[in-house]
């Protein structure tokens, strides 16, 4: 069952490109035509470099910020407008988990109080029931009951992220948008939280939109993966095959840039930095850094098209076998 379906989402910001208050106006296309589907109980991974629009996409699908254009359907119905009563009523069904747990928690409140807060906000359950439910959820995420009265600074980074997760789980959501949920944690703690997320999905059937720049972690948790570059999805497909045989030149560069422990692989080293999103190159936005770019790439923007192996790729040269050999 499709839990969430976003179609042609766009979010544009008006910015000043020139200097000072009278500078030339420009449009920053943070998200520019993103369509994605999240199935109930499954995980869609969203990867890309900083500034590619992956976090904005996460907020757009929840309606935390209003889209400039495009539609979101949640469990078969249109998403109500941001801030409306109907939207508020839907909010307990979908929650957000951020990167920095210390920033997401109130330092002056015991964590238990913060875990109970979502139920108070949505007016669910009596105070006694809230406390009981908080204790249950804390156990589910691997926290101990005596930690209920602790303050965030008394817990370790991994425990704080468990508190944030516990709070998000209080309203029994169907969908969690996790924005770099483990990037702030140490390596040995990351594995604990990754395993916890997978266990929770198994037990509770939660769907995740998992946003991260760490491809190894995304591969570990995702069923499907979408790769973003400058506000658009350039490749989307089944997680394991996408990382084993990336098709889009950008995905290939991204995968080959990951340092590995084993034997060294051939690396596709990109030149330069990603372009400024205010001034997106013509045609395919990646052509300025793409080693395979031809004249068509500079003129025409490629659209996402299904390939033979069930992948979706936005590249003019995706079908050329010669290109695969060159990589």
């Amino acid at each position: 069952m499709t839990l969430l379906e976003a179609t042609d989402l766009r979010r544009h910001y008006k910015v000043r490109a020139g200097r000072g208050p009278f500078g030339a106006k420009a449009t920053l296309r943070a998200v520019d035509g993103v369509s994605l589907k999240i199935e109930a109980g499954r995980t869609l991974g969203l990867v890309g470099e900083s500034g590619c629009g992956k976090s904005t996409t996460g907020k757009l699908v929840l309606g935390l910020i209003a889209a400039t254009a495009g539609t979101v359907r949640y469990a078969g119905n249109d998403m109500p407008p941001t801030g409306s009563a109907a939207w508020r009523a839907l909010r307990p069904r979908m929650q957000m988990v951020y990167q920095d747990p210390l920033g997401a928690l109130d330092r002056r409140l015991p964590v238990g109080v913060q875990i109970m807060e979502p139920l108070a906000i949505h007016g669910q359950a009596s105070p006694a029931e809230r406390r009981e439910r908080a204790a249950e959820v804390m156990t589910a995420v691997g926290l101990q009951r005596h930690q209920f009265d602790r303050y965030p600074h008394e817990l370790s980074g991994g425990q704080r992220q468990r508190v944030v997760l516990a709070r998000a789980l209080m309203t029994e959501p169907d969908l969690l948008v996790c924005d770099e949920p483990i990037s702030a944690l140490d390596v040995s703690i990351q594995a604990q939280v990754v395993n916890l997320l997978l266990d929770l999905q198994d037990r509770l059937g939660i769907a995740y939109l998992f946003i991260s720049h760490d491809l190894r972690v995304v591969r570990q948790v995702s069923h499907e993966v979408a790769v973003m570059y400058l506000g658009r999805i350039v490749e989307q497909g089944e997680a394991e095959s996408l990382f084993a045989q990336p098709t889009h030149p950008y995905t290939r560069a991204l995968v080959s840039a990951i340092p590995v422990l084993g034997p060294r692989r051939e690396r596709l080293l990109l030149q330069g930095d990603p372009p400024n999103p205010v001034d997106v190159p013509s045609g395919c936005a990646f052509h300025t850094r793409c080693p395979f770019a031809v004249a068509t790439c500079r003129a025409e923007a490629p659209v996402l098209q299904p390939t033979a192996d069930g992948r979706q790729v936005a590249c003019h040269r995706a079908d050329e076998p010669a290109l695969q050999v060159a990589a």
Partner: peptide, 14 residues
Amino acid sequence: ALPTLTGPRRRLAA
């Protein structure tokens, strides 16, 4: 504890 980019996916040993 390290996830990998290749090979079969297994549960991480945290």
